[in-house]
Design a protein around this nucleic acid. Structure first.
Length: 267
DNA sequence: ATGACATAAACGTTATGA
């Protein structure tokens, strides 16, 4: 079996909010070499598209499709298999940052990664914008059609009490509001399943911890980074890992405040 | 206590993040 054929049957896909591509480059290389993912959705590049360091990833066998911008936001798809760009930006929401990119992956997966708006606070205009951005995401996603689709990224919503360290006490506060949870449910209702939660219905596992106040060690985290898939993707999923070891400092390098999340798919 | 950390920005202070 050639390497190309192997990838048609076994695919490791991932999502990772890296909190600054240029600041995280050396750390990312260690993770890529260790976990060897085939497709990675990245969020929060904080880098203009034209400054993306393609050669650094090409040296590791990856090419990148990039939707960046200066200072903030920015998404990309890294692949070591063939991929074709399908969509750059969320239609109707281009003014709210570089937050969506889609590629067709060799082997038959349509792969989209998103960096959903944070919202800042319930009183802030960004909160209403966050809800509107989700409405646009649902409309855009519903207009598409592909048998094997993955929507992954940093969703900035805590879907259930189990997914946030504050549990039921968080209800009604930002990330935990009914309005946000309705939007997340609307995304799921387009025919998507949370790959981690599907395999581990009762586990409490977080993908983000605040840098401040020793949140990681105090287990004050949130699960806000998701790999969502259609039934064909769910059926192919063999394992899902929230890679919390890579939320820790490594060889003196600072980690992102988000852990990578990856899934192994077989077909 | 709106702090704590970390990142980027023609910057030594401010905006953003979740």
């Amino acid at each position: 079996m050639t390497r190309r054929d192997w990838h048609k049957h076994n695919m490791r896909i991932a999502t990772w909010n890296i909190n600054g591509l240029r600041a995280r480059l050396d750390f990312m290389k260690l993770w890529l070499a260790d976990r060897k993912p085939n497709v990675v959705g990245l969020q929060e590049l904080k880098t203009p598209t034209e400054d993306f360091p393609h050669e650094e990833f090409e040296a590791l066998g990856y090419k990148a499709l990039v939707h960046g911008q200066k200072s903030w936001n920015g998404v990309a798809i890294l692949t070591n298999v063939d991929a074709e760009l399908r969509q750059v930006g969320l239609p109707g929401q281009e003014d709210w940052g570089a937050r969506l990119i889609t590629a067709e992956i060799d082997g038959g997966i349509e792969f989209t990664t998103v960096y959903c708006p944070n919202g800042k606070s319930l009183q802030h205009d960004d909160y209403a914008n966050k809800l509107a951005w989700y409405d646009s995401l649902v409309a855009h996603w519903s207009a598409g059609d592909h048998p094997k689709r993955v929507l992954c990224g940093d969703f900035n919503i805590v879907p259930t009490a189990l997914d946030g360290w504050r549990g039921e006490a968080g209800a009604g506060t930002i990330f935990y509001t009914e309005d946000e949870r309705k939007r997340f449910a609307a995304v799921m209702d387009t025919g998507l399943t949370d790959l981690y939660r599907h395999l581990y219905p009762e586990e409490q596992a977080f993908s983000w911890w605040d840098y401040r106040g020793g949140a990681f060690h105090r287990k004050h985290g949130l699960r806000i980074d998701f790999l969502l898939g259609t039934q064909a993707a769910v059926a192919a999923t063999r394992e899902v890992v929230i890679d919390r070891d890579y939320r820790k400092k490594l060889d003196g390098l600072t980690a992102s405040d988000h852990a990578p999340v990856y899934a192994d798919l077989h077909s």
